[in-house]
Design a protein around this nucleic acid. Structure first.
Lengths: 289, 289
DNA sequence: TACAATCTGAAATTATCGCTTCACACACCG
DNA sequence: CGGTGTGTGAAGCGATAATTTCAGATTGTA
């Protein structure tokens, strides 16, 4: 297909102008993309109501995109949809529109999908639930550890868990601090470790020391399973393959987020109070929103 | 509710009644089926004109099919189309074995999929490619910045980009270091920023300062689009909703990984050498441990 | 802090749509 | 040939949608 400048889709025009959109216009863009293009195929009044802006704002957006008015804008949406309905929709609609199937975004998306569904089949949801039970237990302190690559995921988990409950800390990246950190690990504490391929020998050593001190170890690892599993009370094996030089940590992040959400749910009363308190503390220095 | 409670599609109702349709109504039916259902999603006037009948005939047909009026008829067409356009993805085949559908893991998986496919529709793959072009350009230094939550994702990206190329650094989390960090940002440098909702005012300030110094800003944000978009040469909007108290950063991580993989591909020769060198250095380090 | 520029939505205005009415057309009968 | 029933669209009447106007709100700037 030849690159026709004039027949740019509404979606393309929107993306092109996305930098110069006002707040109300961005709301409209978000609303439209949330259900593209059906959301724009209602009356201007309805569209404005759904996006929670005024009708003039809709009109201004349509004009900014180069249309004579709202009807022209809608006509273009209808034409696009018509054209799209002619050819078999199937997967093109699903992934990045226009981009070739071989585009890295689509290849990565396929891999992520495979990893996610593969991991969910691989892991035992009872182990997950039991882990949540440990994380939600406020009598236990929580220590999170990650390797060179997974450190970022561990840090992300800690940031969120700290919002949900007290007594959460992250093992520093610097190995030389580990011995002194070990002193703070006591009986009944939980040590949640991320250890994926290229298993770090020092992580294993650390796990062994923590286990001796009575810590409960939970391991998040890959499908080949880190040797730390021998020491762990629960092991969550995941799939991490990616069309890249390195593994994908999307699923580990997924599990981290799910653990946080489940932990919050398990102990909503106390957590809610904590979150609200955090909110009010944050808003002290902030204005609106 | 309304008498037309049965869930028959407009097409089905039409075929059912096809025996008792008048001449004008058959013309309308033919017109609608010629481009179903788009032909019916225009104004009653236009629909009548295309079918070469009068507007009252359209109305009579709508009522004959059991609708209160033309708007109800059209609403039904829209609903059908919406349902048809829904991603076939939503019908995911049993995720975690045994676990109930309502289990947090499955709910999170659904949300992740929605976010992923939604983001890919929202994303402009040319903006992605252009960003890769910037990241792969070794004449430019790369600076990566993240907010309170996205800092971990930014850090993950930096860890990987540093393996792929020189001149990559992470903006420290501590705000007080930012002014001096700014000194290192020069013309042609790339500033890749993660800014998702609860947009950080200081991030915007920092972006503005960097832009003044001539940096090219690439923004990874959510579907509501951070105000930094005004300063950015490329903006990658993503969907981040999750069944949790906080947003999901799975898709931002996905994009980070895809950016790394694409950057590596874009410059394979040099990158390969660098990775090999890194490998040998790590081996040495391990033996000396 | 004041001023200018920009953004936003309430209200007023205009255009268009959806619907009703009704006269006419065309059958099929007695 | 009228009479009767059904189908059709022109014309017009609200009702709603689309657009314009304008004043207040917000934001950036000196």
């Amino acid at each position: 297909m030849s690159p026709q400048q004039r027949s740019a889709t509404v979606a393309e025009r929107l993306r092109e102008k996305s930098g110069e959109l006002t707040a109300a216009e961005r709301k409209l863009m978000a609303t439209l993309f949330a259900n593209y293009p059906m959301a724009g195929l209602v009356s201007i009044t309805e569209f404005a109501r759904v996006a929670e802006v005024s009708t003039p704002s809709v009109l201004r957006l349509a004009k900014k995109l180069g249309f004579a008015g709202f009807p022209s804008f809608q006509e273009e949406l209808r034409t696009e949809l018509s054209a799209q309905l002619q050819n078999p929709i199937s997967k093109h609609d699903r992934w990045a529109a226009d981009a070739p199937d071989a585009h890295i975004l689509n290849r990565f998306a396929s891999a992520a999908l495979e990893n996610l569904s593969g991991s969910l089949k691989l892991l035992d949801h009872r182990a997950f639930d039991a882990t949540v039970g440990l994380l939600a237990d406020r009598k236990r302190r929580i220590h999170v550890a990650g390797g060179r690559i997974t450190q970022a995921i561990a840090s992300y988990l800690v940031t969120h868990l700290q919002m949900a409950r007290p007594g959460v800390s992250l093992l520093p990246a610097t190995h030389s601090f580990w011995p002194q950190y070990l002193l703070d690990i006591g009986k009944q504490d939980v040590l949640l470790m991320f250890d994926i391929r290229r298993y770090d020998a020092r992580m294993l050593e650390f796990a062994a020391s923590a286990e001796v001190r009575g810590a409960r170890i939970v391991l998040i690892t890959d499908q080949w399973i880190s040797p730390i599993a021998r020491l762990a009370v629960h092991t969550l094996p995941l799939r991490i393959e990616a069309p890249s030089s390195w593994d994908s940590n999307i699923v580990p992040l997924f599990v981290a987020e799910a653990l946080v959400a489940a932990t919050v749910n398990a102990n909503w009363r106390e957590t809610e109070a904590r979150i609200n308190e955090l909110e009010s503390l944050s808003e002290t220095g902030r204005r609106n929103k």
